[in-house]
């Protein structure tokens, strides 16, 4: 399967400039390649177009996240690039599917928030809100979701819809925002504490 080995090296060079540098420095140590394939890979690795491939690879990996988590990406601001570098370093691209990539990134970002590597007053609640919306667009049950907010979600989400930070800051507190798709299109409403407790109570 020499062609498969050729394609694997080429793909990994596209995904990682560091891998590309390592290949250029130590290409004799990469197994399974014919002399012609080695020659081709050395040649393309040194071509300036490989930087274009990598830039497009990154932009295309970014697209599903930006499409499904636009408010979260906005809130991450200057942290976004380094966060994505860490995410992509841990998780090689498996799929351009929105749901797969979005779910994996949500899990990763929650860990980053828990360890304090990523910070932001609204990131966690907005991330969980956007993830729930993304799943509901695919009609994933349950079709009634409740997302807990630590700030008043109405002014917060209204500002984010304009890609702005809320000003003044939304009132802190314990809010439960329902996303209800049981009748088709999503309906959003803030629940009372009692209603939230009823919906969130474990079923016996």
């Amino acid at each position: 399967m020499s062609l498969a080995a050729y394609q694997e090296v080429l793909c990994r060079m596209v995904a990682s400039a560091a891998y590309r540098e390592r290949f250029l420095a130590q290409s004799d140590e990469f197994p399974g390649l014919t002399p012609l394939e080695l020659h081709r890979l050395r040649t393309v690795a040194a071509q300036p177009g490989m930087r274009v491939n990598t830039a497009i690879h990154r932009a295309n990996r970014m697209a599903p996240l930006h499409q499904t988590l636009p408010f979260t990406c906005f809130l991450l601001g200057e942290q976004l690039r380094e966060t994505l570098d860490r995410f992509w370093g841990l998780y090689p691209s498996e799929s351009l599917q929105l749901d797969t990539e979005c779910g994996r990134f949500t899990h990763f970002l929650m860990e980053e928030l828990n360890t304090g590597r990523v910070t932001g007053a609204y990131v966690e609640e907005v991330l969980l809100f956007e993830r729930a919306c993304a799943e509901l667009r695919l009609r994933k049950p349950p079709l009634l979701r409740v997302v807990r907010f630590r700030h008043d979600p109405e002014p917060l989400l209204a500002a984010l819809a304009q890609l702005e930070l809320p000003d003044p800051a939304p009132e802190p507190g314990d809010y439960h925002l329902a996303i209800d798709c049981r009748q088709g299109d999503a309906d959003f409403y803030v629940l009372s504490d009692q209603a939230a407790a009823t919906i969130l109570a474990p079923r016996s």
């Binding site: 793909c11 497009i56 799929s95």
Partner: peptide, 16 residues
């Protein structure tokens, strides 16, 4: 690329 964790280049690469 196949594998336990399939890899996707997120860009169409030319075949030889």
């Amino acid at each position: 690329l196949p594998g336990e964790h399939e890899m996707h280049t997120a860009i169409s690469m030319p075949v030889p």
